Amino acid sequence: MPEVPVAALDLELLRSFQAAAQLGSLAAAAQQRHRTVSAISMQIKRLEETLGSRLLERGSRGVTPTAIGEALLQESRELLRLHDGMLSRFTGRGLGGKVRLGLPEDYARELLGSVLPEFMAYHPDVLLEVVTATSGELARQLSRSQLTLGVVLDRPHSLPGGETLWLTTPVWAGPRVGGLGTRPRLPLALHEVDCPYRALAIESLEAIGKSWHAVFTSTSIHAVEKAVEMGLAISVLDRERLTTAMRELGPEDGLPPLKRCEARLHFARHIDAASQPAVDALANLLRERLSQRGPWRTGGSSGPESRRPPSWR
């Protein structure tokens, strides 16, 4: 009985589609995959013909996945992960290469304490470097490919592309006792320029005509928190960072509401081919652990979710 021919997916086509969908640009995908733009375009066209569906919408600002393309993006990550993991097990070659990851300082403590040590334990041959900075500085480094991968808040500088991991919960933080919010000129503890929460604080106060002055400025989140705890100033922090020496302030204290920020995962435009599997593995881990909830409970759960075998190995 003759065999019925079955369409097969070319993994290289999937990798090119994944790069274009993640980066939002055929040109960026071509640079990352070390191919020409026309080659990437042809690969995606062949994949669309194989599946009989349009996968990317082309526009003046780049490409975005269609509904079918978004579904394929999710499933292709798992397929490529399984393929690469099986290949490394049977060939005896684990993941290697170099990954330079950028993180906002406000979230570095939680990620350094749980997610990243786990990744390094499973991939000891990957040279991982972690950089913490303001989101504005991280955005600049990503645009220059000085970072391979980054978690960046969408303020004050919004990078094109990327994918949302979680929404932040910024709040006005004041000392447990005292009435700093009622002063004619609001004393603020702020990060340097390029900090999303600095931008949020200033925009919100200026929108209601509230006078303010920066009584304390630091690059350290811990120094800013200490200034609040000691009653020196008010600041904008993620709600999860409030300590017992602080309280959340709001309209009753004369302070305006704050907009939420998106924490987004971004890839560099150029990634060395030898490092790409390691970059993808770390990106999958970040998606799995941070999607829709952020870093606050990544290492503290003892429930069924924490015992689920990771899907990024």
Rank of each mutant, 00 (worst) to 15 (best):
V99E: 01
E75H: 09
M42S: 11
K98A: 13
A8K: 11
P256L: 06
A108M: 10
R183W: 14
H270L: 09
W312E: 01
E206A: 13
L258H: 05
E118S: 14
L112C: 04
R77K: 07
A108W: 08
R89F: 00
S220Y: 07
D238F: 00
A199W: 04
G96C: 04
R287G: 06
S235I: 06
H270P: 02
A199K: 01
E49Q: 14
R176P: 02
G179I: 15
I271S: 00
S218W: 10
A223C: 01
V131Y: 06
P5E: 13
L111C: 05
P196A: 12
M230P: 07
V131D: 03
R109T: 12
L23V: 08
E137H: 12
R54E: 12
K259I: 13
T64R: 09
A274E: 15
L73M: 12
R155H: 11
L9I: 08
L73S: 10
P257H: 14
R89T: 05
L111G: 03
A245T: 15
M120G: 07
L127M: 13
G303V: 03
R307C: 01
L147P: 00
I271C: 03
L111E: 04
V131I: 14
E225G: 07
S301F: 02
L290K: 01
I68K: 10
T50F: 00
M246R: 04
Q141M: 08
E129W: 02
Y197F: 06
V115H: 09
R198P: 03
F90L: 12
Q74K: 11
P156K: 02
A121T: 07
P117L: 13
A133D: 15
S211N: 12
A273H: 13
E118A: 14
R93L: 09
I68M: 04
R54D: 04
G62S: 03
A173V: 09
F216V: 08
T244C: 10
A19V: 01
R58G: 05
D10L: 09
V177T: 15
H222V: 07
R183Y: 15
A207F: 11
D272K: 06
E118F: 01
E57D: 10
L167G: 11
F267E: 00
V152W: 05
A223K: 07
G178M: 08
A207Q: 14
L127V: 15
A189D: 07
L290C: 04
P310S: 05
D84T: 15
V126W: 02
G62T: 02
E206R: 15
E78K: 10
R77C: 03
Q22D: 13
A21I: 07
S302K: 10
I234Q: 02
P117R: 03
Y122M: 15
A201N: 00
V37M: 13
G250V: 01
R247H: 07
V171E: 01
T168W: 03
R307K: 01
A27H: 12
R109D: 15
